[in-house]
Each structure stands twice: as C-alpha cells, then as structure tokens.
Amino acid sequence: MTAVTTDVAGADTRRAGRWVYVSAVGLLCAWVLVPLYFLLINTLSSPETVNSFPKPFIPEFDLGSLTFFANFAGMLTALKNSILVAGLTMIMSIVIGAPAGYALSRFDFRGKELFRLLILLTRAFPLPLLALPLAVMFIQTGLDDTVFGLALVHTTLAIPFAVLITFALFSGIPLELEEAAWTLGCTRLTAFSKVVLPLILPGITASAIFAFVISWNEVFAAAVLTIENRTLTAFLLQNLDTSPLHLKFAGGFILVMPALIFIFAVRKYLFAMWGIASR
C-alpha cells in the first residue's frame, strides 16, 4: 500500500520535473524564435500590412517590402559593400590566422602561452575606444572610407577566433599522420597540402564563415570608418530614424538570415573551439 503511494508520488515528481524541463526548453526556443518569426512575417508582407495594426500571424508572401528595400537608394551598394568587406575579412583572417593556429599546435616556442592569451586580449578593448585613433590613422593613410580599410579592422576582430578554431583543428590531427607522410616522400609543405589540409578543410571553411559573419554583423567600426562606402549595417543604422517600418524589417531580415544560417552550419566547430567535444 505504502509502496504504491510512493510510486505514484515518484511518478508525479518525475512528471512535474519533465513538465518544468519541457516548458523551459519551450520558453527558450520562443525567446529566440518568436522575434525571428515576426521579422519573417513583416518582411514577407506588403508595406501596407506592415504599417497597419493588428498584424497577421501568417505571412502574406508579398514581396512588396523586399522590392522596396532593393529599390531604396544606396541599399544595394551597401549590400555589395557588406559582402565585399566580409569576403575580404574572411580571406585575410584565414590567411593570417590558420598559420598561427598551426604554429601554436605544432611548435614549441618561448612565450607560447602568453601569445595565446594576447590573442584573446585583442578582444578585451572595446571597439569605441579604438575607433577614434583608428579613424585618425585611416584618414592619414587614406584607408578611411574604403572597403579594404574596414576589412582590416574586421580582420583584427575575427583573427582571435580564426586562430583558436584552427589551433583546435590542427591539434586534433595526430602528428604521426604528418610524420608518416614525411617518411613516404613528402616535404613539410606537401605533407601539409596532401594530408593535413584535406582533413581540416571543413573546419577551415567553418572558421572562414565565422569570420564572414563577424564582419557581416559588425556595425560600430563600419559606421565610424565609412561615409560613402557604407556597409549594410552602417547604412541601416544611418537611416534608422528616417526609413519606414517595412524597410527596417526587410533590412533586419536580410542581415539576420545569412548570419543565422552560417552559424547554424558551423556550430560543431564553434563548440570545438571552446573545448566542448564535437558531436
């Protein structure tokens, strides 16, 4: 009799625990997904619907807002600039970051630990602190308001991640594989290109995409350092108070989607960077 009661109580506790668990998961998902869903609805609705109230809960699949966005003066140039800057950032941070990651994982040198710490420290200074001196320097060197100049700043922001991700990747490849390649007729370089590179290529891609997203999302340096050649984030920020609601929604959607998709695609490698076993 008693046993049955405890059993029921136990089952009740379990059910309650499960209910708390499910609702917590649901709440967290809603926290992230509901704003995204509203963004989606408003982007895919006609400008009239966006500005009216109440709003529908099902998108109209009207491309009016997006068309308006595309036709807004300077918007497509800003989009192009964003892609260019992010692309350059991606290339530069891999070209500089991957060899650093390789060196960190394969060679022993004095100050290795300090170097790892310093890499992270580059993220310790808030960008607004650096932006003014940078702007002055860029004006002096003629790098201001150029795609390349902004890409340089974004590369600085992305490099710590590029180094840490590639460091984790290279460390995951046993040195024995390289040594085997050396004994089989490879130089250090051919062993790298024939054995190490194919193995880390997916990870390098992930790291590159992450650099792309960092640049894509960055708004402060972009707003301070460019005037004519605005990136999408800076351009939207500039027109925030003057632009109509449906333009903001469309712009926000265009900004958020690539970042979301890319980050989702490379999540495994981001976990690896922080030392969480990748699954």
Binding site: E176, E179, T183, P198, L199
Partner: peptide, 11 residues
Amino acid sequence: MVFQNYAVFPH
C-alpha cells in the same frame, strides 16, 4: 616507417 598508432590517412 610503421607507426604505433598506424597513422593510416583517414581521408
């Protein structure tokens, strides 16, 4: 050379 952990190229 034959290595202790075989070092067979996984790719």
